[in-house]
Simulated assay, not measured.
Amino acid sequence: MFEKVLVVEDHQTSSKAVAKIIEDLKIPFCEYLYYCDDALIRIKKELQTGQPFDLLITDISFIEDHRPQKLKSGLELIKAAKALQPHLKVIIFSVEGRPTPIKSYFQELEINGYVQKGRLDAIELSQAVLQAAQGKRYMPYQLKETLAPTNNFNFTDYDITVIKLLAQGKLLSEIPQILAELKITPSSKSSMEKRLNHIKTVLDFKKNEQLVAFCKDMGVF
């Protein structure tokens, strides 16, 4: 479980709800901030002390007030934070419910979870934190169903074998020999890469890591 969490939220009611979840999960330390600029300063400071935050939970939209901010949104904060601390786990907690933007957060910002504020958000946020602590990604079921293009792509046994090998940490250069030993064809690197590129194009992914994460999330293997 996480030891140190940073929550960035400018609504007190939402902050209190998150605080209750963090308390229930028995996370030792959690800091709450209202401004993205302050959050980035804290992330920098804790990195310098050698005791960085394990998890960042942030909203997307922040209301402008009398205090000017360089970072205008949670998305800008995530980009800046990951530039400093690439392996920082991130969960977005927001009212945004449109599938396309949410999909881009997973693909472009490589977030670990997304929870839409609503009726069951306390339960979902708790699940998201637990999943992220286990190195998994969390996406609410209704959003997963909306975003998942599995109906548009039929994974073959060959596809699943190659993607599973990638998930196991095998390098692209190592997989052709493994396929040959298993007598699976085609086993050439060029054929394998061509197939992977086709799958990523259809599913709108840029990296093999995104494809692997998607297949894990959707239960492809």
Results as ranks from 00 to 15, higher is better:
Ser73Gly: 11
Pro52Gly: 01
Asp159Gln: 05
Ile111Trp: 07
Leu33Glu: 04
Ser187Ala: 15
Arg42Lys: 12
Ala128Asn: 12
Val7Asp: 01
Tyr158Lys: 12
Ala17Trp: 02
Leu6Gly: 06
Lys136Pro: 08
Ala180Gly: 07
Leu211Cys: 09
Leu75Phe: 01
Lys144Ser: 13
Arg195Val: 01
Lys117Asn: 05
Val162Lys: 14
Ala83Cys: 06
Gln107His: 15
Pro140Leu: 03
Ser73Glu: 07
Val129Leu: 06
Met192Thr: 03
Lys144Thr: 08
Leu56Glu: 02
Val115His: 01
Lys183Tyr: 05
Arg137Lys: 15
Gln51Ala: 12
Met139Val: 14
Ser15Pro: 01
Leu211Arg: 09
Tyr141Pro: 00
Leu130Gly: 08
Thr150Met: 11
Lys216Tyr: 04
Thr161Phe: 10
Pro99Cys: 13
Phe155Met: 10
Gln168Pro: 00
Gln168Asp: 12
Pro86Thr: 07
Pro52Thr: 04
Lys26Cys: 08
Ile60Val: 12
Gln107Glu: 15
Ala133Glu: 15
Lys70Pro: 01
Leu56Asp: 03
Ala83Thr: 08
Ala180Met: 14
Glu124Ile: 06
Val8Met: 04
Tyr35Phe: 11
Gln177Thr: 14
Lys194Asp: 03
Ile21Lys: 02
Asn152Leu: 12
Pro149Ser: 09
Leu77Tyr: 04
Ser187Arg: 13
Val129Pro: 04
Lys117Val: 05
Gly50Lys: 11
Gly118Ala: 13
Ile163Ser: 13
Gln69Glu: 07
Lys20Phe: 00
Lys70Leu: 10
Ser15Lys: 10
Gly135Ala: 11
Gln48Lys: 07
Thr146Asp: 09
Gly169Ile: 08
Asn154His: 07
Pro68Thr: 08
Ala39Tyr: 02
Lys183His: 14
Lys194Tyr: 05
Leu120Met: 14
Leu56Lys: 05
Val129Ala: 02
Ile111His: 10
Ile160Thr: 09
Gln51Gly: 06
Met192Ala: 01
Pro99Asn: 14
Glu181Leu: 11
Met1Cys: 01
Pro52Asn: 03
Leu55Ser: 11
Glu124Val: 03
Ala133Arg: 14
Lys4Leu: 06
Glu76Asp: 06
Lys207Arg: 15
Gln131Arg: 15
Tyr34Ser: 00
Lys20Ser: 06
Gly74Phe: 00
Met139Gln: 14
Gln168Arg: 13
Lys72Ile: 07
Cys215Met: 09
Ala213Asn: 11
Pro186Asp: 03
Lys45Asn: 11
Asp59Lys: 06
His11Asp: 07
Ser104Cys: 11
Val8Trp: 04
